[in-house]
Design a protein around this nucleic acid. Structure first.
Length: 697
DNA sequence: AAAACTCCTCTTTTT
DNA sequence: GAGGAGTTTT
């Protein structure tokens, strides 16, 4: 009834006890989860809010909710479908008081973490530029559930980082003082809550009769621990993932979670979904051959009913500019041929700086494009500024926001005044805001400064006291009163106005939570354009035609990820994720010379190309852009393909004597390229491109 | 408080 | 080679 394949059905029907689903790329795992949710409610009669469903991103959660409610034609408001972070914040908003926080806590994002750590480093007189590394390390500790106290107590060993420990202790203290939680706290404190308050844990264990986890390969230690706590009673947990698509190790994702699952949950049912609904067999063969070189992985054998499809194209250029120009021309050719619209194409790259040259090339060819990912809306300075007013009004303890806006817009409050307030706050153990308020009663400030400060305090108090109808109302009020509406230049003002209109008639607390947890606002692309993105951003997407660029040593794999086998394995997975996004046609490209940062470098072809089975590929090398010369590469002689004329199945050609026909198949490389063309009235002809004098139309 | 200057960094990134 | 941040100069 659900139109699922046998393996998917098996996974659907197994609903007592732990299950691990290895879901290969394109094997319909999101579909499985949606159906499983419905199955649990319909057949097992579970209520919508008794299934704890975790997705990797908020976007995925929204899509999941939408998908489910469309399938059952019912609203599922109140269902527990979300990311680990949003689920945890929902729990903590209810329960956190027992841990000594107030439940109107503020959620700090990475930027706030940076600010706080920098502030602490300044105070400790530690070299401030270390802040990024320190935030990363603190985050790693927290996602391993190592509290400052734990870290200190392990600290007598060799190589212990005294400074880090000191900063970590202080950082965690400051967060609490601010009544703020960072992303890792959301998980760590929920675990703490469940460990220390068994009755609360039991309540949630009973509440959540079933646990569904998507993208399990990207969970970290703390998240997995949380799942184990929640599932330890009934053990009704189904995790779905693909170890080959684990690409977030640098963010704490622990691929071992997926390998340990069956040890941690005895009697785990394991199901492999190996039927792929996306790619052609050629693409599966190539990507499969590459990924099979990783040693530590569950073996899979992906297959498809789609047929072999076109061969994978590999193209090696003289320079990175040639690479970009060629890609633009190829896209244009496909487009003009009429087989594809622009939205069918995606170009992937390892690092963002590769986008620039691609953009130029596309623009020169008049090809519309969009960049997926990139700087997120909510990270913009002006957005963070106005939100800081909102946060401080709702949580007077939020020192990070206080420091951010005390002199925005400029009201003549300099570092001397701020240190006075900091000092006072420390002395009286108050928040900066409350310390300031108290100081204003005394005579510690010059009259002019005092006036400005009083104005500031009154303003924030007004925002706190006013009962707003919606987040939009509040922001609009702030926007006017603060003078931000005059402070920023045009573009920033527009962004703020966009924010205000998007927050109209939204509940203030929901809105704050949402923007704290949602970091990007990628609206769906309505116009017909080519998508450019990093390989990381490509995860979960699919396109008919995919280009993966920069297949060079130092780019893919990236030069900073060559330190050990593990890192290279992750780069290989990244490449794998990219390849398996392609439905029909996959192009792999690279260039001999590439400009990275300021210097032009000589590049070698990527080591991953050695694993690509030759028979699945068309290889060509274009050393000189318009005058190809023969040269050998990748351990074999490669003939150069005809100059920019690409024949693909489905394209129409004109032959001097047989007229117009449709290409049915193409094979062979360079001078040996042959095509099979179906000419109406004449029939199918096999032709060598070199001799046939074909004209593409 | 703006302008001019130097220094630094520059993987990937969602929450 | 560019953007950001911090510092010094005006």
């Amino acid at each position: 009834m659900y139109d699922l394949n046998p393996k998917q059905k098996e996974a659907l029907n197994y609903s007592e006890g732990p299950m691990l689903v290895f879901a290969g790329a394109g094997s319909g795992k999101t579909r499985l989860i949606a159906h499983k949710f419905i199955h649990l409610t319909k057949v097992k009669k579970l209520s919508h809010d008794s299934i704890f469903t975790v997705t990797f991103t908020n976007k995925a959660a929204d899509e999941m909710k939408e998908r489910i409610s469309r399938l059952i034609e019912k609203d599922i408001n109140g269902a527990w479908i979300g990311t680990f972070h949003s689920q945890c914040s929902r729990i903590l908003r209810k329960e956190i008081k027992v841990l000594g926080y107030n439940n109107n806590f503020t959620i700090y994002d990475e930027d706030d973490q940076y600010n706080l750590v920098r502030h602490i480093l300044k105070e400790f007189k530690i070299y401030e530029a270390l802040y990024k590394g320190i935030v990363t390390r603190i985050s790693f500790l927290k996602s391993s559930l190592i509290s400052p106290q734990d870290f200190l107590s392990t600290g007598d060993g060799f190589g212990f980082d005294e400074k880090l420990a000191k900063v970590y202790v202080r950082y965690q203290d400051e967060l609490k003082r601010c009544n703020a939680l960072d992303f890792d706290d959301l998980i760590m404190l929920t675990v703490k809550l469940f460990k220390e308050y068994r009755d609360i844990l039991e309540m949630y264990q009973n509440k959540f009769q079933y646990i569904l986890v998507d993208e399990f390969q990207d969970t970290n230690f703390a998240q997995y621990h949380l799942l184990k706590l929640l599932a330890s009673g009934h053990k009704n947990i189904c995790v779905v993932g693909d170890d080959d698509q684990s690409i977030y190790k640098f963010r704490g994702a622990n691929i071992n979670n997926i390998y340990n699952f069956e040890k941690d949950f005895t009697g785990t049912k394991i199901i492999k979904l190996e039927q792929n609904y996306r790619c052609t067999q050629h693409i599966l063969d190539v990507s499969g051959a590459v990924i099979s070189r990783n040693s530590k992985r569950k073996n899979k054998n992906l297959w498809t009913e789609k047929g072999r499809g076109e061969k994978v194209q590999f193209c090696w250029f003289n320079t990175y500019e040639d690479e970009a120009k060629y890609i633009a021309r190829v896209i244009k050719e496909y487009y003009l041929k009429g087989t594809n619209s622009y939205r069918d194409f995606a170009v992937f790259y390892r690092v963002n700086l590769q986008a620039r040259v691609l953009e130029d090339a596309l623009r020169d060819n008049g090809i519309p494009y969009r960049i997926v990912g990139g700087i997120s809306f909510y990270q913009r300075k002006e957005i963070k500024d106005i939100i800081a007013f909102m946060r401080l009004a709702l949580n007077h303890g939020d020192n990070v926001s206080f420091r951010r806006i005390i002199n925005i817009p400029h009201r003549g409050i300099g570092s001397a005044t701020i240190s006075k307030i900091e000092h006072e706050a420390r002395k009286k153990s108050l928040s900066l805001f409350d310390a300031l308020k108290l100081s204003l009663k005394g005579e510690s400030f010059a009259p002019a400064v005092k006036e400005k400060l009083t104005e500031f305090v009154n303003m924030i108090d007004t925002f706190s006291a006013t009962k707003y109808k919606s987040a939009g109302d509040m922001l609009e009020h702030i926007y006017e009163i603060t003078g931000l509406s005059e402070f920023f230049e045009e573009e920033r003002k527009n962004n703020i106005e966009d924010l205000i209109s998007s927050s109209n008639n939204k509940d203030i607390k929901d809105f704050i939570d949402r923007i704290s947890l949602i970091t990007n606002m990628d609206e769906p692309c309505n116009t017909d354009c080519v998508s450019l993105m990093t390989l990381h951003n490509a995860k979960g997407l699919e396109f008919p035609v995919v280009f993966i660029t920069g297949l060079e040593e130092g780019v893919l794999p990236y030069c900073k990820a060559l330190n050990n086998e593990e890192e290279i394995a992750e780069e290989r997975r990244l490449f794998y994720v990219g390849m398996t996004r392609a439905k029909d046609i996959l192009w792999l490209t690279g260039a001999r010379k590439r400009k990275l940062y300021a210097k032009l470098q000589e590049q070698e072809p990527s080591r991953f190309l050695k694993d690509v089975p030759k028979e699945c590929c068309k290889w060509m090398e274009k050393i000189s852009f318009n005058h190809p010369i023969q040269i050998s590469t990748i351990k074999q002689k490669i003939k150069i393909a005809e100059n920019f004329t690409i024949y693909t199945t489905g394209c129409r050609v004109k032959h001097p004597s047989w007229g117009i026909g449709v290409v049915r198949d193409c094979y062979g490389d360079g001078d040996d390229a042959k095509v099979m063309v179906n000419f109406p009235n004449i029939g199918i002809k096999r032709l060598a491109v070199r001799f046939a004098n074909l004209e593409k139309i």
